[in-house]
Amino acid sequence: MNIFRLSGDLCHLVAIIILFLKIWKSKSCAGISGKSQVLFAVVFTTRYLDLFTSFISIYNTVMKVVYLASAYATVSLIYLRFRSTFDSESDSFRVEFLLVPVAGLSFLENYAFTPLELFMITKTGEAASITTHYLFFLGLYRALYLGNWLWRYHVEEFFDQIAVVSGVVQTIFYCDFFYLYFTRVIRGSGKMSLP
């Protein structure tokens, strides 16, 4: 821990509190981007899953819980309590334009790839049709990257070890899913359930 990080975390906490109080006191969330707050809540949720897997320090745990609680509290203020003051027209940025590159980047720079949806399929033995299509395009994106790396290796003589290794591993995760997808969803009942 260093002064920069401690003061940074506290500034982050102050910002969250300011936003929350602003909405709470003015009883209005006009001018606030609800989508951004939802994305913050999603980011905190996905990043802080390690709350349940590894204990680092009291500070670390407390701050993560505070961030999570405040993010969800803010989202609930915007979308529930003061919904009438939320003008969604102005909150028009396309989340997918942000999520796609971020999702792409998260595939490139990571340490392990265990998408919860794939886990859910193996766990529950089935997935709703829309989820399979979502995973199909996610997997297709991975497969296309293999082509991209082959192209870049032969044409540009460029090779990025981390990206390729993690990308191949991720794509291998999708092989059994692709098989189920084509045999069951495309040809079959439109809903995937493991044999």
Partner: peptide
């Protein structure tokens, strides 16, 4: 090797 204690930034 990924060490969770190095990656403790919030």
């Amino acid at each position: 090797e990924y060490n969770v204690y190095n990656h403790d930034e919030l």
